[in-house]
């Protein structure tokens, strides 16, 4: 009897405040969608970083012929300089950070170039002397790039050091900003949903003041007096959650 009564009271209350209920459902739905989008975006960013950073390398490009860089004033990197850099990679400062080091000679770089551009690059046919030798370093922890770069940069025979992660930085930056924006909007919308729900409960309580007054006088327990309002206030957000889950195809 009590359960039936509570259900009928909730039904009546919801019918009475139907516009407010629709507003709560919509606002909650949108805010939860933003929350979900932000969470999904963050998960995706994390996954992409794990995947892509695992594949990228740090490239130490050695001075080619005719380089105008300050570190290359003595001309093309000599075998002695290459050996010194190779030894540096095995030094206690760098070795613990490095998973794998591979030296790519000019000949290997040219072979790679030919495989990628069999018809030449932008109409020009390059030669082996246009290539530059490099060290390809795979780090154990890609985020420790700067330590390696600081040690290697400025060494004789080094033209410049490139962290391939930089290529993705702008993409991740944009994705991160989008997820923060989404989270910010979600927070605002959730606040609006909470305020709307509170207002719905208060309106409902106001409109049934006489009824609750009588309930108290005839000895209805406090939880029984409050339960319909609580459930009435909670139902629209629950519907919004169910709709959002259905829309996302989640269980």
């Amino acid at each position: 009897m009590r359960f039936q009564y509570v259900l009928s009271e909730i039904g009546q209350g919801l019918r009475r405040n139907v516009t407010m209920v629709v507003a709560v459902v919509l606002v909650t739905f949108v805010s939860l969608t933003f929350v979900g989008a932000a969470a999904l975006l963050q998960m995706q960013i994390g996954k992409l970083q794990d995947d892509w950073y695992g594949k990228v390398e740090v490239s130490v490009f050695l001075c080619p012929q005719g380089s105008t860089e300050a570190g290359c004033s003595s001309g093309e990197a000599t075998q002695q300089q290459i050996d010194a850099l190779s030894a540096l990679m095995k030094s206690p400062d760098v070795a613990p950070l490095v998973e794998k080091v591979q030296f790519e000679s000019k000949a290997e770089a040219f072979k790679e170039f030919q495989a990628r551009y069999p018809d030449g690059y932008n109409g020009t046919q390059l030669t082996q002397d246009d290539m530059q030798a490099s060290f390809r370093i795979k780090l154990k922890d890609p985020s420790r790039y700067q330590v390696v770069a600081d040690v290697v940069t400025g060494r004789p025979g080094v033209e410049y050091v490139q962290d391939e992660r930089r290529i993705f930085d702008s993409l991740f930056l944009a994705l991160n900003r989008a997820s923060y924006l989404s989270a910010g909007l979600a927070a605002v919308m959730l606040l609006a949903a909470v305020l709307l729900t509170t207002t719905t409960i208060r309106l409902s309580a106001m409109s049934r003041r006489r009824e609750t007054g009588i309930m108290r006088l005839v000895g209805a327990s406090n939880w029984f007096v409050h339960l319909p309002f609580m459930l009435e206030g909670r139902s629209p957000p629950c519907w919004a959650r169910a709709s959002r889950s259905a829309a996302c195809g989640w269980r």
Binding site: M1, R2, Y5, I214, V218, F224
Partner: peptide, 27 residues
């Protein structure tokens, strides 16, 4: 009087029993 205007005479009186959880047959 403090009656509920949208309820009939029967329902107004039954209300006092409903809200304390009395069974339908008792009401």
């Amino acid at each position: 009087f403090r009656l509920l205007p949208n309820k009939t005479v029967f329902d107004n009186v039954a209300f006092a029993l409903q809200v304390i959880g009395e069974q339908r047959h008792t009401i």
